[in-house]
Computed example of a mutant assay.
Amino acid sequence: MVHETGNRTVDDAVERVLDGERLDRTDGLALLAQPIEALAAGADLVRATLGDGTVDACSIVNAKAGSCAEDCGFCAQSVHFDTGIDTYSFLDPEEILAAAKRAERDGAQRFGIVVAEKGVSKERRPDEWAEVLRAIRLVRDETSVEVDASLGILTEEEARILAEEGIDHYNHNIETSPRYFPEIVGTHSFEDRVATLEIAKDAGMDLCAGVILGMGETPTDRVEAAIALQDIGVASLPVNILNPVAGTALGDQESADITTGDIIKTIAVYRLLHPHARVRLTGGREVNLSADEQHLPFEAGADGILTGDYLTTEGQSPSDDIEIMERAGLRPNTTVNDFDPEAVGTGGSSSTDTTAVGSATSNARND
Rank of each mutant, 00 (worst) to 15 (best):
Glu94Gln: 15
Glu94Leu: 04
Glu95Gln: 13
Ile96Lys: 12
Ile96Pro: 02
Ala98Arg: 15
Ala99Cys: 09
Ala99Gln: 04
Ala99Trp: 03
Ala100Val: 05
Lys101Ile: 06
Lys101Val: 09
Arg102Tyr: 09
Ala103Trp: 01
Ala103Pro: 00
Ala103Gln: 00
Glu104Ile: 03
Glu104Trp: 10
Glu104Leu: 02
Arg105Tyr: 09
Arg105Lys: 13
Arg105Pro: 00
Arg105Glu: 12
Arg105Asp: 10
Arg105Ser: 15
Arg105His: 12
Asp106Ser: 14
Asp106Pro: 00
Asp106Trp: 01
Gly107Trp: 03
Gly107Arg: 07
Gly107Met: 02
Ala108Phe: 11
Ala108Ile: 07
Gln109Asp: 03
Gln109Met: 04
Gln109Pro: 00
Gln109Gly: 05
Gln109Thr: 05
Arg110Gly: 14
Phe111Ala: 07
Phe111Cys: 01
Phe111Thr: 04
Gly112Gln: 11
Ile113Pro: 00
Val114Phe: 08
Val114Ile: 14
Val114Leu: 05
Val114Gly: 01
Val115Leu: 09
Ala116Glu: 06
Ala116Val: 12
Glu117Gly: 10
Glu117Leu: 10
Gly119Pro: 04
Gly119Ile: 12
Val120Cys: 06
Val120Ile: 14
Ser121Arg: 09
Ser121Met: 03
Ser121Phe: 07
Lys122Met: 15
Lys122Pro: 00
Glu123Gln: 10
Arg124His: 12
Arg125Leu: 03
Arg125His: 15
Arg125Pro: 00
Arg125Asn: 12
Pro126Leu: 06
Pro126Ala: 06
Asp127Thr: 14
Asp127Cys: 01
Asp127Lys: 15
Glu128Arg: 11
Glu128His: 02
Trp129Gly: 07
Trp129Pro: 05
Trp129Glu: 05
Ala130Asp: 07
Ala130His: 11
Glu131Leu: 15
Glu131Asn: 14
Glu131His: 13
Val132Phe: 04
Val132Leu: 13
Val132Ala: 01
Leu133Met: 13
Leu133Tyr: 05
Leu133Lys: 15
Leu133Gln: 12
Leu133Glu: 05
Arg134Ile: 02
Arg134Tyr: 01
Arg134Trp: 01
Ala135Phe: 08
Ala135Met: 08
Ile136Tyr: 05
Ile136Lys: 03
Arg137Val: 03
Arg137Cys: 03
Leu138Ala: 04
Leu138Gly: 06
Leu138Cys: 13
Val139Tyr: 08
Val139Thr: 09
Arg140Gln: 11
Arg140Asn: 07
Asp141Pro: 01
Asp141Ala: 11
Glu142Ala: 06
Glu142Pro: 10
Thr143Phe: 09
Thr143Asp: 06
Ser144Ala: 08
Ser144Thr: 07
Val145Trp: 11
Val145Phe: 07
Val145Gly: 04
Glu146Trp: 13
Val147Pro: 03
Val147Ser: 10
Val147Gln: 07
Asp148Thr: 12
Ala149Lys: 03
Ala149Asp: 01
Leu151Arg: 08
Leu151Val: 13
Gly152Asp: 14
Gly152Ala: 15
Gly152His: 12
Gly152Cys: 14
Ile153Val: 11
Ile153Leu: 13
Leu154Thr: 10
Thr155Asp: 04
Thr155Ala: 08
Thr155Lys: 08
Thr155Gln: 10
Glu156Trp: 05
Glu157Trp: 05
Glu158Asp: 09
Glu158Met: 06
Glu158Leu: 08
Ala159Gly: 11
Ala159Cys: 07
Arg160Val: 03
Arg160Gln: 14
Ile161Met: 02
Ile161His: 00
Ile161Trp: 02
Leu162Asn: 00
Leu162Gln: 04
Leu162Arg: 00
Ala163Tyr: 01
Glu164Arg: 14
Glu165Leu: 02
Glu165Met: 02
Gly166Met: 06
Gly166Cys: 03
